[in-house]
Design a protein around this nucleic acid. Structure first.
Lengths: 188, 188
DNA sequence: CAAATTGATGTCAGCTTCTGACATCAACCG
DNA sequence: CGGTTGATGTCAGAAGCTGACATCAATTTG
């Protein structure tokens, strides 16, 4: 018999999602989230650096996942091909999280502070990507630019995928977006 | 004779830059900024929505500038050519702000919250760019992707330009970055 | 097995950010 | 001249966040 209910962190995440969805991010206090999870405000801040972080539990694992995917990517002469491999891997990661992604996107879309934090998470992924590309011998500014391109495609694809009524696989949407990107960047 | 010293907003911006540079963003309270500017904390918040905004006074004019630049860009079949024209215009805008850009970049680089806000400002520019491209008949997702590409190039170029010892014109650095981007995106 | 340690949580005090409500008073307008 | 306007000040208070210390079941140690 343990002293506390297990999975405090998960309970906080769940409580936060519920409350944010019900009445919005600003109209919810940290004390209320903690209360619904059967904990105190102070404990919330032991699990999350600030109020927004509770909505981005996947950020760290996803970054690690990116780093791994890029290390495992097959050799390719062109940076964007490496990016393509990472996007494929990322698609698999999200494959079974579509409902969660959708719900979270709705909450985030309703609040500027949360969008701000989402940009940070994406920027972190960009940095991981760039670092991985540099690790594969790609120089600057090519690595940074290819990484930015990858994240841009990722972002666009993720939004489209979550928004679509039909259930396509994310991988397909990602590849489509990447193709569109290549067409945009083509010299003519 | 006016009742108050003129240019309260400018004084707040200057005071904030000084204090942030001296002892850092977190170690400076809004009351201190206002005090150095000869005002009160409450007045600070009448000029800036929050503590970070004081460091981004150019954001709105720059957005308007982007919108104008994109409307004025010459007809071009390829989205990225329109983006190139906007980058040229943006380069002119920053031409005589190099020292300010440098000082601000140093302050921003030292604090995560400020980097977060900077991402928002860039995202706003991306949105303006995308909207302008759509207004020129470019569809989705091409408009969004081209806009992301433009902002990425802009970001990379601005950092390089401010960091360089020699005094090149920003326009040159931007064009170089755009070329690098095209090379990255090329299929081989 | 008793004692010491650990670790997740609670309690409390306090600072800072940010906002609403109301007051002030020079400049301006009719 | 009297009324209005607008930038500022004053005050109170909610909420975010942090440091310091207490608690106590579980675990480890001797």
């Amino acid at each position: 018999m343990s002293r506390w209910e297990p999975n405090a962190r998960g309970r906080l995440e769940a409580a936060a999602m519920e409350l944010f969805a019900e009445r919005g991010f600003e109209q919810t206090t940290v004390a209320e989230i903690a209360g619904r999870a059967g904990l105190t405000e102070r404990t919330f801040y032991r699990h999350f650096a600030d109020k927004r972080e509770v909505l981005f539990p996947d950020a760290n694992p996803l970054g690690a996942f990116f780093a791994e995917a890029i290390a495992d990517a097959p050799d390719a002469a062109v940076p964007l091909d490496v990016v393509a491999a990472v996007l494929d891997a990322a698609a698999d990661y999200f494959a079974d999280r579509r409902d969660f992604s959708r719900r979270r996107q709705a909450v985030v879309a309703a609040n500027a502070e949360l969008q701000e934090r989402e940009l940070v998470k994406l920027a972190t992924l960009t940095a991981v990507l760039a670092e991985g590309l540099r690790g594969r011998g790609i120089g600057e500014p090519a690595a940074s630019l290819a990484a930015e391109a990858g994240t841009a495609v990722f972002k666009v694809a993720l939004v489209r995928w979550a928004a679509e009524a039909e259930e396509r696989h994310l991988r397909e949407v990602m590849r489509e977006a990447l193709e569109a990107f290549r067409a945009v960047a083509a010299r003519e």
